[in-house]
Simulated assay, not measured.
Amino acid sequence: MSAVLTARPPEPVEPATPVNAPKPLLAAPQSRLAIAVLWLFVLVPFAALAAAVPVAWGWGMSPLDATMAVVAYLISGFGIAAGYHRYFTHGSFKAPRWLRVTLAVAGSLAIEGSPTQWVADHRRHHAFADREGDPHSPWRYGASIGALVKGLFFAHVGWLFNREVSNRDRFAPDLVADRDLRVVDRLFLPLVLVSVFAPALIGGLATMSWAGALTGFFWGSLVRIALLHHVTWSVNSICHVVGDRPFTSKDKATNFWPLAILSFGESWHNLHHADPTCARHGVLRGQIDPAGRLIWIFEKLGWATDVRWPDAGRLAAKTITR
């Protein structure tokens, strides 16, 4: 198989640029329309998530609604954790072209941004973690209680409305140059529409009723999108403030076990920042890492190669002795 078909994205370091022509940290600012759309996609699903418990109590969730919500959550969540994050951002394994495109599409269904922009933001985060230049550090305003409360809100959701945009040419030049990823980037809006309206269409056709379409949209789209968004954003906020730090890293990243399953293992964030290219984040006994297990399955099926599994020597060197 050619190198093109099994390309591994580069490690999360800033690409070298000529001294006389440095690429800027930021690209053109987000438009006011983009900010308005962001508000829509943050507030509407969040309102649905907040209403989920009383609605379920009085109205209920059908088996079809539950199945659509779970399946969509798994597809889009694994697309983010195993695809956008461990594969595209950090090159934790090599994948054939079909799997590369599949992971990009699955991650797009999470509605967290196009693959190239998501990767650019995350590589910038690693380049400047918890320092000036980090797009979403909760320590942005200081370490006092008031500053940290403000910083947690910013790291969780506020940074999305900051007009600063990470420069894709600087932080994700490999994805910018990839023809397949450029196509997926251009198809991001249609994929968003599929993610939002497919559950309603399936629910309506399966039950031949508007009620089925409405409940499918509520559970399979709004609640599912909001839950995945806030779990992902919690890794940016909570996992840099609360939790354990068994490994040394150059920042304040922590392991926060309550989010391990819902985040597909992404909340083992301290290990990730200590060893960013590692394909498994939950490396200690009892640490569940669904995305790491999915990559293991890919490897067993011959779909993933050159997987960067935990190395005992690296882990021992980074372990904090107590």
Rank of each mutant, 00 (worst) to 15 (best):
A260T: 00
S166Y: 02
S166W: 04
P135S: 06
A48Y: 07
H125K: 13
A34M: 04
D130P: 05
R179S: 14
H229M: 14
V37F: 14
E299T: 00
P258T: 04
G243P: 10
V231W: 06
T248R: 15
P29K: 01
D289G: 03
K250L: 10
P115R: 07
R179H: 05
V283N: 01
H230K: 06
L160Q: 14
G151S: 04
S76T: 04
I288V: 15
A104W: 06
A120W: 02
D244R: 15
M68D: 07
R168A: 15
L201D: 08
L99Y: 06
L109I: 12
F217S: 03
L259G: 04
A143M: 08
P45E: 08
L5W: 01
A120H: 02
H281K: 13
A279G: 12
T277S: 14
I288P: 00
A129F: 05
W139C: 00
R97A: 13
H125A: 09
Y84P: 02
W219F: 12
R308A: 04
L271I: 00
F154M: 08
F46S: 09
S237G: 08
I80V: 15
N167C: 09
L109F: 11
M68A: 10
L109V: 08
W59T: 14
H90C: 06
L148A: 05
H240I: 06
R100Y: 11
R293H: 05
L152A: 08
R140W: 05
L301H: 01
H240F: 06
Q30L: 12
A81R: 03
R280Y: 00
Y141T: 02
V183I: 15
S108V: 05
Q30M: 10
A3V: 00
T102G: 15
A72E: 03
I202M: 13
G216Q: 08
P258L: 02
T89M: 14
P258E: 01
Y141A: 09
R322Y: 12
K318R: 15
R245Q: 15
W233H: 10
G91S: 03
P15D: 10
F218R: 09
W268S: 04
D134A: 07
S209R: 02
R314F: 08
R124I: 01
L74H: 11
A36M: 12
